[in-house]
């Protein structure tokens, strides 16, 4: 079985038609489905949050069978993720895509349980501390994409679970939890 780092690739990754956007509808639906699963799985295990269409994303080419996805195919597969709410375009030109292997709501729930686990119910943290602080080490929040974190925090703010405020000295924003 072929591996990409420590990621185990499925057999069909060496099936050449997997890398050509199929024109027949039923076949294409299945192909798109398989690509969506693979992209989400890979990003989850490798903690990849942003996929650039023009960058060398390891899944998009297979040196073993000498095949790689066309730009059109890459966009089609990511678009399928976007339409399911599992990804979002970061720019209007569709060049960068945010991969949401946890939806924003799921991330919000993860933040809440992180806060409870660490007894931070009434404390203040900076956004950067949540991403890279000692408390978050070993959790899924460690190294989270800033855009995703902010979206999840704003969702919690709307629900009254915390308040976001602008720091005075740094660019960084602070978070006051109030559970």
């Amino acid at each position: 079985m072929q591996k990409l780092g420590d990621f185990k690739l499925p057999h069909f990754f060496n099936y050449p038609p997997y890398f050509t956007l199929q024109p027949v509808r039923d076949t294409r639906d299945k192909q798109v489905q398989l690509w969506k699963e693979l992209i989400l799985d890979y990003c989850r295990t490798q903690k990849i949050f942003v996929v650039g269409l023009e960058e060398d994303f390891p899944l998009f080419s297979n040196p073993v069978v000498e095949r790689s996805l066309s730009h059109e195919a890459r966009e089609a597969f990511l678009l399928a993720l976007v339409s399911e709410g599992r990804a979002e375009w970061l720019d209007k030109g569709h060049r960068k895509c945010l991969i949401l292997w946890h939806r924003i709501q799921e991330w919000a729930d993860i933040i809440l349980s992180f806060v409870k686990d660490n007894g931070l119910e009434d404390s203040v943290m900076t956004v950067e501390e949540i991403r890279s602080g000692a408390e978050s080490r070993g959790t899924e929040l460690h190294g989270i994409d800033r855009t995703i974190l902010m979206r999840a925090l704003r969702l919690l703010e709307q629900k009254g679970k915390l308040a976001i405020f602008k720091g005075t000295s740094t660019d960084d924003e602070g978070v006051k939890f109030s559970l």
Partner: peptide, 15 residues
Amino acid sequence: FYINLFADINTDDVY
């Protein structure tokens, strides 16, 4: 052209 294998692949367990 290849024989169509897509139908044989299980989406719940890709392995």
